[in-house]
Design a protein around this nucleic acid. Structure first.
Lengths: 250, 250
DNA sequence: CATAACTTGCACAGTGGTGTGCAAGTTATT
DNA sequence: AATAACTTGCACACCACTGTGCAAGTTATG
């Protein structure tokens, strides 16, 4: 078997195939966290056999998806904060929406599969962040005080995931998803829908910006960065020029 | 094989074992909707082989759980309504809580497994009811008007299921679960936490009543319009190896 | 172009699950 | 006590999936 040698740079097509596998896996595992390698391979346009050229075992593949997804989600939430806990929460919702696919697959793996332990591990920092914001918000009387902080944080997380699911099921527009996630998290946090609306309207950073081209059918290869952990050299540069206008995810 | 004859009344122990299988299955399928028959049988204190004495196939067993659970949930929600849609929604939440185990297993099966179609079917009446209440509430300006009725109904359902999950995870008390489900559904429906609290406080039918040992045996004093396949009525003691027929498995 | 890198198909071993037949046991019921 | 009802263990066929070895192909790349 040729589990690709990491000391030498891999062949270009091989690198692409590896990414295709990861994308296919992410897609399929979203629907069924126990999708077969056969299916994943087919989705990537490869044979099952060649998956073993990139990943020694199914577990290794899933773990890779997990860490990659974790990185993206963590990155998306990295600089999220605000003096007003309500804005911070809405912002978290919005950022989660910008990473729906990754967030959902993480959620799937967090429940089932042999990696739910590792997954909880990956998600801990994010959850910690939310919890601390919630605590702060409760202390500041910005959020409801009738639910224990930890519980409330969990409920907010659950609300966000619910919306993500619903958004996929009903195939909502990008903008509608953005709006709904914020509304649902704020609602769970204790705000009336009028209050939630006011919070959103008055804060520019919560506004929807049409950056990504999501929503339609997927292009054969997403322009999306699935960054491999080794950044030894930049063999590919086509994503170099980026419009980094504020919080717009690419 | 002896798929028990339905024309003749089955032997008492057989009837009990059948129920034990269903209970074990409901329990295990809650954690893992693809739990093996081996595991289910063990949970019921039987051998895998004897399950086939009661159910011709795994599918048949799952279907049975589905219909039984559907009946209970439907029954629990049968007479739920109120002029005030907010009260109605809280009431639905409360009733769902009173059937957590059943509701959750239904939710599990609704997502995965070959019966998700049939499951959607089973759940339709309940969902219909919720949707019509939501529509009414929006029209009456009792609920938020910034989310389409169908979407809102789905989100409320999702919020309720989230709380149910969280309640199980965190092992909340019966009373706390009751309270949280109502709060979460009302929050999603657009109410602030103060408003939600007010609604709950002012309506006696939303108050928590210490239910008779939820979960295992049938509610002794409920009118129970739900027909168990056998209508025998003695409280069966739950401790595992009580009703076993032959020698204990190693 | 030559070659190493990569993919593929096939065969095979192993695992864990379902569903069945059957003979031998155990137990409720009459 | 006799009998029918039920459970069990075992053996078996069957399926879907993972993981591996290998020989033969294809393709990127220097």
């Amino acid at each position: 078997m040729h589990t690709i040698d990491q000391t030498k740079p891999p062949r270009r097509d091989a690198a692409e195939n590896r990414i295709a596998i990861l994308e296919s896996a992410r897609l399929l595992l979203n629907r069924d966290p126990e999708a077969s390698l056969e299916a994943i391979a087919a989705g990537a346009g490869l044979s099952r056999r060649s998956i073993y050229g990139h990943f020694a075992t199914r577990d290794e593949l899933v773990t890779e998806i997990q860490t990659l997804g974790g990185q993206r989600v963590t990155a998306a939430l990295a600089h999220v904060d605000h003096v007003d806990s309500r804005v911070a929460i809405a912002l978290i919702g919005a950022r989660l929406w910008s990473e729906v696919e990754n967030v959902r697959v993480m959620a799937q793996l967090a429940v089932r599969g042999p990696q739910r332990a590792a997954m909880a591990d990956t998600l801990r920092p994010v959850r910690e962040k939310l919890r601390s914001i919630v605590e702060r918000g409760i202390a500041a009387r910005e959020l409801r005080t009738d639910v224990a902080p930890t519980t409330l944080a969990n409920l907010i997380e659950g609300a966000a995931l619910s919306v993500l699911d619903e958004a996929i099921r009903a195939d909502l527009s990008n903008e509608e998803g953005h709006r709904l996630v914020m509304l649902a998290t704020l609602a769970t946090a204790g705000l009336s829908w009028h209050e939630a609306s006011a919070v959103i309207v008055h804060h520019p950073e919560l506004q929807f910006v049409e950056a990504p081209a999501r929503g339609e059918t997927e292009p054969p290869r997403a322009p999306a960065p699935l960054q491999s952990p080794d950044a030894s050299h930049e063999t590919r540069d086509r994503t170099a020029a980026s419009t980094r206008t504020s919080g717009a995810p690419s």
